[in-house]
Nucleic acid binder design. Sequence first.
DNA 1: GTCTATATTTAGATAGAC
DNA 2: GTCTATCTAAATATAGAC
Lengths: 199, 199
Amino acid sequence: MARTVDPALHARRREAILGAAGRLFAEQGFEGTTVAQIASAAGVSSGSVFYYFDDKPAVFRAVFEQALPHNEALIARHQGTEEPFAAILDVVAGLAADADDPSASGMVVELLRRIGHDEQLGVVVERASQVVREGLAGLVARGIEAGTVDPELDPADTATWLENIVDAAYLGARPGHSPLPALRRTVARYLEPGRTERV
Amino acid sequence: MARTVDPALHARRREAILGAAGRLFAEQGFEGTTVAQIASAAGVSSGSVFYYFDDKPAVFRAVFEQALPHNEALIARHQGTEEPFAAILDVVAGLAADADDPSASGMVVELLRRIGHDEQLGVVVERASQVVREGLAGLVARGIEAGTVDPELDPADTATWLENIVDAAYLGARPGHSPLPALRRTVARYLEPGRTERV
DNA sequence: GTCTATATTTAGATAGAC
DNA sequence: GTCTATCTAAATATAGAC
């Protein structure tokens, strides 16, 4: 059977390309980054990039496919929790973990923008986002049962809104100023029951 | 003295170009939009666009210079208010007014991304944003004095965070689902004094 | 002032040697 | 599998007619 001579080397090269691409895309944007730059930063030739990936958009998508396992782990960690309210805060903090890294901020913006332009990317991101959204929605529902989350909230809508708030934290990234405390306050107060306002 | 033959016509043409450009940039992004498309949509030739604007980035910047007066009016409206808390909610709602328009959402993302790439754009946006931020910070400070806003909040930081939350509302734009109620709840609860959590 | 036509540049993608 | 060299397409910006 035909097979790659050295799968490990193959994977290493592939990851070198993805690492370089991720950094460059975050700093310069998708269109602002050339395949030649990626190849150069990864220490391979321009032609090799097209051996590993079909085209430039495929490189961008692959960068985000790496995020999927991370998100799954984050949700799985809190599956059997007794404290859904605290679990939500922890998941949100995990999602926003590197929100104070300006390059992560650039990547998020670039991602949001390209979703509308690359249908296949939409599928990749939707898959990763769905894991988080369903996990959060489940935690919100359990928080409502436990009486620690406002029963007027719709779990699915709330999960989506929480994702948006996390994105906002990335947008507000400034060197030397972590948005995490404000994020935590925002989410905790949003969820709590027993306020006078109505949605 | 040399002067434009018909200033009114000149302005009309300029605005036709800006209108077309705004729509196309929002839908297709900056790089995804060609000057030829803008010209065609505005009913002029490609060459004419370069008569009205120095280059393509200048067209993009001009689209946002239009936002400055709108923001100023929004802040000015609440200058002498007796109810700073309500005023903040109103300003935020005004900023997010067209957050449920998907094309506005695309434009915000595109804007955030291009700020890092076009220094002059950064200046334009910073000017518009500063008006809002200072206005909001003033209202937060007055709310603290009035006892309706949590005194533990820093007015300047809070104003910045509120701007980020508004951006989140744009990101969450989905047809048939306005993010405004969630935004209102988020902001109101974030500001209120007398919770157990600490920032 | 506005057009048409085009020069210039650049980058994605491929062909074929090794 | 990886390289070098190159082809091709596209889009910005300009030159010059009207």
